[in-house]
């Protein structure tokens, strides 16, 4: 089972979701790799209490 998914990763075309440094997404795009960049910001605007609740409540 588990080998199937890693085998998929290394045999199928790479398709990336990038979150964080946008430069990584830009460079992948330049190489012709499918990439979706997430315009990310810290959950709950960085409020640790709310972020903790969110992680427990799952999104």
């Amino acid at each position: 089972m588990e080998n199937d998914k890693t085998a998929d990763l290394i045999s199928k075309p790479l398709n990336v979701i990038n979150i964080g440094l946008e430069g990584f997404a830009t460079e992948l795009k330049q190489q012709g790799v499918s990439v979706t960049h997430v315009d990310w910001s810290p959950p709950a605007g960085g409020d640790p209490k709310i972020a903790d609740l969110l992680s427990k409540l799952g999104t």
Partner: peptide, 10 residues
Amino acid sequence: IDIRMVLDTG
């Protein structure tokens, strides 16, 4: 509207 997603995404 899901309040969790409102807060998660800001």
